[in-house]
Design a protein around this nucleic acid. Sequence first.
DNA 1: AACTTCATGTCGCGG
DNA 2: CCGCGACGTGAAGTT
Lengths: 278, 278
Amino acid sequence: MPPAIDLRLQPRLEELVEFLRRHLAARRALLILLATCTVEYEGRSASHLGKGDRLIIIKPDGAILVHRPWGYSPVNWQPDSKILEVFTETQPEHEEVVVIKSVRARPREVLLVKISKAYLVVAAQGLEDSAEFVEYLDEHQIRDILATHPEEIEPGLRIVRIEKPIEPGFIDLYGVDRQGYNVIIEIKRVTASTSAVKQLKEYVDAFKAKNPHIRVRGILIAPSISKEALLLLNRYGLEYKQINIEKLYRKYFSLEKRSIQKRISILNFIGKAASNSH
Amino acid sequence: MPPAIDLRLQPRLEELVEFLRRHLAARRALLILLATCTVEYEGRSASHLGKGDRLIIIKPDGAILVHRPWGYSPVNWQPDSKILEVFTETQPEHEEVVVIKSVRARPREVLLVKISKAYLVVAAQGLEDSAEFVEYLDEHQIRDILATHPEEIEPGLRIVRIEKPIEPGFIDLYGVDRQGYNVIIEIKRVTASTSAVKQLKEYVDAFKAKNPHIRVRGILIAPSISKEALLLLNRYGLEYKQINIEKLYRKYFSLEKRSIQKRISILNFIGKAASNSH
DNA sequence: AACTTCATGTCGCGG
DNA sequence: CCGCGACGTGAAGTT
């Protein structure tokens, strides 16, 4: 059954209130508003946004987004809210507005969208979206690939443990090198910064503290590393190993849990993107 | 001049292509789509999203958001993109789709939204939004308030320097206490975690290394602190001072650069929100 | 452009 | 519900 769409162009404010209340009562509508409004927020922080044209979205789960006509981020929002009220109010300057008030319990946060003029309001009932979202190339997968193919890190390396628990956290990969030295490996999927170096240092130190007599190396694996991070790394006597994530992925991505079709399509896709970028 | 709104309900795919192309060519439209689609992404990561009903937004600056019917975050997006193409394509399963292809140059990322059925498409031309967005209670402001009113940290404390540069970063506040000891202060506006403690420790150590003969205290200021963080803090011989950000703000927020009107309204607002929460 | 730090970060996972 | 870490983090500011 396709979604049912109800909409009003240039609704009067009374109409808008009625429309919103009706569709919010139904509880399963996605609401879209184009309107001139101001926005007040108070909670973990507080903010005031003056009058302007915005896109306002209220999702069936109570999430609210107020978007300005540019950029990725909403200017104001509420990730979810159980309490949602719609009412009219007369501003100190005698202007009539429709207020959408959303209250979140914990942390306590209040969002007020005050609409002075609505251009369009849409309600969509019965949107269906149960599809799976599959992500590739996250740290988890890179870690698993490297665990299965440690020769990509260095010849003779043997991985002993994945996600080895240590005093303050988990070691991504833990193994033994050709010479028999213990190796602690920290993986980053983006440019490694000083914080990654510090994290690795912390693990190595914790390991040394617990095993004073065992020799241990620390390797930071990332597609790139910042200059500062490399300096600090060297100062700490740690090592850096560069990897090409896309190459690794194309070489090894296995699919015990995935369909051949998916694999082919994603690999084709990556292939095309790569060749496009020549 | 109010924004001009153009829309189509249940457009056929050919209509949709024409509609999108026309309004993208005009270059100043905000586009809103309700449609059944799949989404492919490839760039810093890669993802595949199966078929479902989504809200798709294309902003005048080329930002694209694909929202599922729940949650705060878009499932796929493009923060901005210079290259935007719309075309029809026949899928391997012989299904006809409208593809919105967005390419971002750096980092190179490709987003493909493949629409098999559109329920609604809206174009809004000439949205006006030049209003100022004023934020309160960010770390900057808390830091400035504490710098002006160090007695809120402890009696007799004198702040000497704000954002004092040190080896790896900046000390939020640097001062001298009643006894003449140097004090390094790190401020967090949310619950302090172990990383905040480590950061403070790092600053204190760096200071000690540079000034071996000078006694120095380290104080972590935050509205709350995690158990682990407090333990670590004590182990390091550092101190924790709890603050109530809202209280501080209401007591001291000054407005050299702000209008009285704004101040009154936000304070009223905070007041009301606080009393509501009783 | 590289790099750092803040954020109403959000989100998911584990205890 | 905390607490911690990853994120296609985004966004702002500095070098």
